[in-house]
């Protein structure tokens, strides 16, 4: 960075690398690493489903879900610059809280509704009736 750029940055309100726990910034390298990982993590599940390389659908679904979870973490770290230090750890705290809420809501809804479907709506097979 040139001196001129530094002065410009200082004039713009000192939006540099403050150690006061502000929002984190990315670098060209981190963006490119994140992009490369994202391309691989997107291409592999699409390829798996489109070609049907693995015949077992449940195994394919499991791999696709794991790759999606990894890609979400990659985006969080490399694009949203998630770390434990930014804003003195409060962004991480907010995210952990949200993840807990999301997990409770998703697993709870799916679990309860699945059991409702299984237990409350029996399929009457009239041919078996006496």
């Amino acid at each position: 960075m040139t001196t001129e750029a530094r002065t410009l940055e200082a004039n713009a309100g000192g939006h540099g690398h403050d150690d006061h726990g502000g929002a984190a910034h990315g670098s060209l390298k981190s963006y490119l690493i994140g992009f490369g990982l994202s391309v691989v993590l997107t291409a592999v599940p699409f390829w798996l489903v489109m070609t049907g390389t693995i015949t077992d659908k449940q195994v394919t679904a499991l791999i696709v879900l794991v790759l999606a979870a990894v890609q979400i973490v990659v985006h969080m770290v490399y694009f949203l610059h998630m770390n434990t230090r930014s804003e003195n750890g409060w962004t991480m705290m907010a995210m952990i809280f949200t993840v807990i809420m999301v997990v409770i809501a998703l697993t709870g809804s799916l679990w309860v509704m699945h059991h409702l479907n299984v237990n409350m709506m029996p399929i009457h097979d009239m041919s078996q009736m006496p």
Binding site: L8, H25, G26, L28, Y31, G34, F35, S38, T42
Partner: peptide
């Protein structure tokens, strides 16, 4: 959408260089 994400990243990098 993935390409738009990386190009926005480049916009942020050029913004930091004013």
């Amino acid at each position: 959408l993935l390409l738009s994400s990386i190009t926005y990243g480049f916009a942020m990098l050029t913004m930091e260089k004013s």
